[in-house]
Simulated scan of single mutants.
Amino acid sequence: MSTIKVAVLVGSLRKASINKRLARAVERLAPKDIAFEYIRIDSLPLYNQDFDADYPAEGKRLKHEIEAADAVLFVTPEYNRGIPGVLKNAIDLASRPWGTNSFAGKPGAVIGASIGATGSALAQQHLRNVLAYLDVATLAQPEVYVQFKDDGLIDAEGHVASEGTQKFLQGFVDRYVAWVKAHAK
């Protein structure tokens, strides 16, 4: 496997999303043989089981992009102690109809950022429960819960201002890359 393709699902639609910044930081720290593809989830219809007979084009696009990837990276904020509805909807669409789970068997990881003290820890646990059911081999350690105390921690291009945060994220990236290489088909 020459280049490893990672499908990145960011659970925030906000233009200045701190989770998108976190994803960009991880991308910048990854080796050149890892290609990050950001999967668009803002245009997806709400999942409805009636789709199962005739899947909508946006759902097919999502499924195709997940299936074309070697691994997945979920970057989630925390909304009311759980994952955002837009991210859950994307997961539901990509894992349906029954028997066509686009995530099955893929290696993955969950990270996230929040302005809160727990830095998306509860949302990540919620997401890990969903991913376990969907047969995503999820990296357990290190856990990445980033608290954004100010706007300068990570900029829009993924530059990390704090040396300690950059070192911590590099440790995550190194473990994630090794995980993906060990588990990718």
Rank of each mutant, 00 (worst) to 15 (best):
G116R: 12
G116N: 13
G116A: 14
A117V: 12
T118C: 07
T118P: 04
T118M: 14
T118L: 15
T118D: 10
G119E: 03
G119S: 06
G119I: 01
G119D: 04
S120M: 10
S120W: 06
S120F: 07
S120A: 15
A121N: 02
A121E: 02
A121F: 02
L122S: 11
A123C: 10
A123M: 08
Q124T: 04
Q125Y: 15
Q125F: 14
H126P: 08
H126S: 15
H126L: 12
H126V: 10
H126R: 05
R128Q: 13
R128C: 08
N129K: 10
V130W: 03
V130R: 03
L131Y: 02
L131D: 00
L131P: 00
L131G: 00
A132V: 11
A132W: 11
A132F: 11
Y133M: 10
Y133H: 11
Y133P: 03
L134S: 00
L134Q: 00
D135S: 06
A137G: 02
A137S: 06
T138Q: 00
T138Y: 00
T138M: 01
L139R: 00
L139K: 00
L139E: 00
A140P: 04
A140N: 11
Q141R: 15
Q141Y: 10
P142G: 08
P142I: 04
P142V: 05
E143K: 09
V144S: 01
V144F: 05
Y145C: 15
V146Q: 04
V146C: 07
V146S: 05
V146P: 03
V146G: 03
Q147I: 06
F148R: 11
F148Y: 13
F148E: 05
D150S: 13
D150Y: 09
D150H: 08
D151C: 03
D151H: 07
D151G: 07
G152P: 01
G152S: 12
G152F: 08
L153G: 03
L153E: 03
L153Q: 01
I154Q: 06
I154M: 12
D155A: 09
E157N: 03
E157C: 02
E157A: 09
E157M: 05
E157S: 06
E157Y: 02
G158D: 13
G158Q: 13
H159F: 14
H159K: 14
H159A: 13
H159I: 07
V160M: 08
V160L: 10
V160H: 07
A161T: 12
A161P: 11
S162N: 12
S162A: 14
E163I: 05
E163G: 11
E163P: 07
G164I: 08
G164K: 14
G164E: 14
